[in-house]
Each structure stands twice: as C-alpha cells, then as structure tokens.
C-alpha cells in the first residue's frame, strides 16, 4: 500500500511563512520566458532580481521589463543590490526599489570586486544597520564567516546567506566547515547562496541543516533550465527530508564486522 508522503515543514523569514526551500535568481537565462518557466517548475516562492537590470524610475522601461514576467502574487520579489560597491550605493538602491513599488525586502549584495563578486563584510554590516533601522527586511549575502553571521543577526538581519563557493562557480559547498558553525549558532534562517552547481550540492546543504538554498547559474545555463529547476526542487526536498528524518552518523570505515572484539560475541 502506498503511504502518503507528508510534506516537509514550512519555515519563516521574519513573519512570512514559506514552504519551498529553493530560492531562484533571475539572471543569465536565455530569455525571460525561459526564466519564468524555470521559476514555475522550481516551485520557488522567492526570486531575486538585480535592481540594475530593472527600471527604477517608475517608468516601466520595456527594455528592462523583467519584473513584468514575475507574478508578484505568487512569489516574493527579493530585489538585490548587485553592482553596489559600498553601503551608500546599496542603501540608495534599496530606497529606489521601494520607491519603484517593490517590496521592502532586500537581498543585500555588496561586492566591490566585479570578478569573483565576493561580498564586502564591512560594508554589508554597515548597510544592514542602516536599512534595518529604516524598516527593511534584510537578507545579506556574506562570506561563510560565523562571526560576521552573528554580528549581522545582532544588527537585525532577517537571515544570513553564506556562500558555498564563489558565485557562478558550480563547485558546491566548499565552505562546509564554516557553514556548519553558522548553522549551529544561528537564530535566523541560514540560506546557502552561490556556488551550488548540482542538485546533490543543494541536497547536501539542506542535509547539513541549512534552511534553504539560492540557485541561479546552475539552472539558468543548463541545457534544459526547466528540467534542471525540477531536479533542484527534488534535491532540496530530498535534503530537507533527510535532515528532518535524522541522518545516521557517518564513519570513514565500514563498521559491519568487529575483527578486534568479535571474540566477545562468540
């Protein structure tokens, strides 16, 4: 008899509840219609959109109309500050986003280096402090730095989003040791962001106890983005279910027999 598979538990950012633990980025897709199809297949309830790609003047520029393709009733549009090099620029972008009618939720990305897009911890903390005071819900993208994660929590960040590996690198959870500490210490959701290249990487992050993952490149540049979105959805669900079910302890060696103490059972 087939038993009904129960869904995994929901989770919250601030007061808002979500069921999907997969967040999607919207860059790098071959077309906006493909992006929308992948988004639907992924079941994601939160999508990030780079503010530099959209019209912030309120003029609905048809040459920058990505937001038109996203159903804001179904998913939360999380504006990101990609391109900002310092706290001032990120704060300015966040305020413009709200003025342009976007939700007061910001994925804070401050990377002065345009090549590896690695986040600046000092500017990120400063911007978080400013924006939290202004009533924003802030999700900061950070290095996998446990101390910084705690400092951001104290500053009022709604989540922390440590990187698994450099953005777009598809290398997986290379910062595993530090992310384990962040998860252990966190009182806000931990979303592993950046560098996850395969559904197995997403599953790994969820198995570790991360609350969610954010995926962009791995889905957007896949031969079949819709198929890959489904695969990540399954990877995330598998990882979360495994976490909730309690994974067995791991060991480097097989433990089937006990050659040294077996005589005790004879």
């Amino acid at each position: 008899m087939a038993t009904k598979v129960s869904t995994t538990k929901g989770w919250k950012i601030g007061d808002r509840e979500f069921h999907s633990r997969l967040l999607l980025g919207t860059g790098k897709y071959p077309s906006v219609s493909m992006m929308r199809a992948a988004l639907e297949a992924s079941g994601a309830e939160i999508v990030t959109v780079a503010l530099r790609r959209v019209d912030l003047t309120g003029g609905k520029d048809p040459q920058a109309d990505m937001l038109e393709e996203i159903d804001a009733e179904k998913v939360l549009v999380l504006a990101n500050t990609s391109g900002a090099m310092n706290a001032e620029e990120a704060v300015r972008l966040a305020r413009l986003a709200v003025a342009a009618g976007l939700p007061k939720w910001i994925k804070l990305e401050i990377h002065p280096d345009p090549r590896y897009l690695l986040p600046d911890p000092i500017e990120t903390l400063r911007a978080t402090e400013i924006l939290v005071k202004e009533g924003f819900t802030i999700l900061p993208y950070i290095q996998a730095d446990p101390v910084l994660a705690k400092r951001l929590e104290e500053a009022g960040a709604a989540t922390v989003m440590p990187l698994g590996a450099p953005i777009g690198s598809n290398r997986g959870v290379e910062t595993r040791a530090m992310i384990e500490i962040i998860i252990e210490q966190a009182t806000v959701p931990v979303i592993v962001d950046a560098g996850l290249g395969a559904p197995s990487h997403a599953a790994e992050a969820l198995e570790m106890g991360a609350d969610a993952v954010l995926i962009n490149t791995a889905i957007a540049v896949a031969e079949d983005p819709v198929g890959m979105a489904k695969a990540f959805r399954m990877g995330v669900e598998a990882g979360r279910r495994a976490y909730e079910s309690g994974l067995g302890p791991t060991s480097r060696m097989a433990a089937a027999t006990s050659p040294l103490t077996g005589f005790l059972d004879e």
Partner: peptide
C-alpha cells in the same frame, strides 16, 4: 540573438550605483 538562445540585455547598470 534570440534565435540562438541568447537574451539581449539592454540595461545592466543604474545611475544610483555611482552618483
């Protein structure tokens, strides 16, 4: 570009980034 599966990007920057 579209026929080749590439999305033409017109706007990739915002003045707010460097005022």
């Amino acid at each position: 570009l579209r026929q080749r599966g590439l999305d033409p990007v017109w706007k990739d920057w915002d003045r707010a980034l460097a005022e």
